[in-house]
Design a protein around this nucleic acid. Sequence first.
DNA 1: AAGATATGATAGTAATACTATTATAATAAA
DNA 2: TTTATTATAATAGTATTACTATCATATCTT
Lengths: 222, 222
Amino acid sequence: MEELHVQITIDPALYTRNPETTELGRNIVSKSIEMIDELGFEKFTFKKLGVAINSNESSIYRYFDSKHTLLVYLTSWYWSWVEYKLVFSTTNVSNPEIKLESALALITKDATQDSAISYVNEILLHRIIISESSKAYHTKDVDKENAKGYYKTYKRVVQRISDIVLEINPAYAFPHMLISTVIEGAHHQRYFSKHLPALTNVEEGLNTIEKFYTDMVFKAIN
Amino acid sequence: MEELHVQITIDPALYTRNPETTELGRNIVSKSIEMIDELGFEKFTFKKLGVAINSNESSIYRYFDSKHTLLVYLTSWYWSWVEYKLVFSTTNVSNPEIKLESALALITKDATQDSAISYVNEILLHRIIISESSKAYHTKDVDKENAKGYYKTYKRVVQRISDIVLEINPAYAFPHMLISTVIEGAHHQRYFSKHLPALTNVEEGLNTIEKFYTDMVFKAIN
DNA sequence: AAGATATGATAGTAATACTATTATAATAAA
DNA sequence: TTTATTATAATAGTATTACTATCATATCTT
């Protein structure tokens, strides 16, 4: 696996002090990913995180003004990272079908292991996205937060893949619905396959999710 | 609209005292639906509910042992109700394509207004399902709760519609994935259309969600 | 060496998600 | 009709949460 040297830029609206720039900040991000994965978002607290990194609750609040914005920060980080990989794997590919195929692989495949940034464990982050990320926007404050740009990176990824769909079939009327259905669907199916298998037909090691959605998308747009 | 006289039966694992059997119980269910819709699940509390129905927090705890099981109860209620309507609208229909079409309409259409049970506002309940129901199973306790049968009714609905899919195409390999994708997808699209429209192509009053998923499903299984 | 800034430690607050106890009201059985 | 049973209400209490505020100390810059 080659290492990608990525500069992932997160909207300053999502933090009060940029965690990338200090060791404490990177520790907060790093350990919070581990702990949210382990405890679940509800049982994760800044106090526990402070203890785990030998720091203090009050210091963490200087980086993120709530547990919730930290979650939004992490999802935003994830989508920036996906966007980077998306651009990387689709530029200079002229055939839009092939572009769409790799885009779909990217959003439906199991966790990728390339370590772009040392302090972020992308496999754990992917698991958090699957289990917890819908909580980031299922809030009574969505509209306010959306206006502040909290979900920009997610929307950008959907837009980019929708554009590829339109390259293949400019008359297709529902590209955004289709792509957001695949993204959310892939997360659900991965979660269901582990916890509610009656809701899936996933078979271990067969890339079922990727195959299912790739097949579905190409049939839908033709 | 004709009135359906339904007997919706909820698994006793989901309550400590059956709320259907007493006025207080029905008030709890009724008002909690209104309040969760209005406040969102996080800001809803049993204390506030107690005040709203002129009762007491401690009395509510005799019906439901947590806020979380109340949410699971409500989702279970919702799926029982959907199951009833599904059976009602598909029995004695011999053509499986037509059966599938009405099943898909049922799970993708906007809130239906027939009042089967007086103390449940199905429109508000549908909104709760859209905005909050994923929180019912995105917990660290899913496996334990699944073993107790908490998600049975949801799984039964998916199973029933998957069976119709298999009637049409017995060789189709992913019926459960397809149907759970449609159900979750329809909820997401409805939520996105209100709060994150960049992720959809929904147009007001055109039944976009129903059309999109119906088209998608029939293309996928043929 | 002085000034600025980041971090840590401690304390405090209102609210949450409960549990426990006791009193009172309503209903059913003797 | 009295008694026993059960449901509800009222009150208090607990540990924890999600913060805010204050102040001391360590570190880094000029």
